[in-house]
Amino acid sequence: MQLVRPSSVEEAVAALRGGAVALGGGTDLVPLLRDRIVEAETLVELHAAVPRGVRRCTPTSTSPSPSSARFWIGAGTPLAVLEAEPEIPTTLREACRLAASPQLRAMGTIGGNLLQATRCWYWRLKFPCWLHGGETCDAKEGQHREHAIFGNERCASAHPSDPAAALLALGARIRTDRRDLPLAELYRLPTDDDRSMTTLEPGELILELELPAAESSIYVKAMDRQRWAFALVGVAAARVGGETRIALAGVAPVPWLVSSPEELEQATPLPGTAYKLEIARALVQRALAQL
């Protein structure tokens, strides 16, 4: 395995051609490399290449509400910077603060956080599960207490990102080296033909995010311990331009938008995850009451 350290976006994109693996903060990738779940001949360290930082920005033509204030965030910005950024919407700040321990928030980047792999123990232990290309989802038959209640027909894994739910509720957009898209279009439920969880093309690199200022927003999270653990259920709610949006973490293979609290009743919980639906109902109610 070799390591390259590009110093510009162009160099990074060139280095990522041919199956190289991008390394952001490393908090998710380093254990995956060690456990050989991710195999790489070349690692591309993004530290000096991908932008970092937060600033207010002028609205772009693609902004859904071009008149309001917006924020630009470099994809290489660590979560610890975002949680301490007083101007950005509360839901994102709180989601970053609650996402992980101080050690992980210091290294983990927002771009990498959006792309982190599932915590499903079968997948992480390299069971030949459906997501690894096999026939069946081991979690559905086996232990699945931390797994999905939505979108779980083929794979019951739960997406662990708190900031992704916050950014979905805000209607954030991302820009990659080749396109600009709503964050909602970054994610896809895996299918029999294509089991990836994102629409990123090979070697495509997330560079920046853009999000609106919210009139009001909140992030609430149920965990197994009071201070940092992956979300059993995370609920982001945001009111932007008079419209309220709700997104959930830890409930589906990808971050999950719901159009109304009633949509929670369309959940398809497994025997061991029925409790998550009750938590989701309570947290959505609490989030909307405090919005």
Partner: peptide
């Protein structure tokens, strides 16, 4: 403060 096990 970082976890040295997660930093290359």
């Amino acid at each position: 403060l970082v976890c040295a096990c997660l930093v290359l």
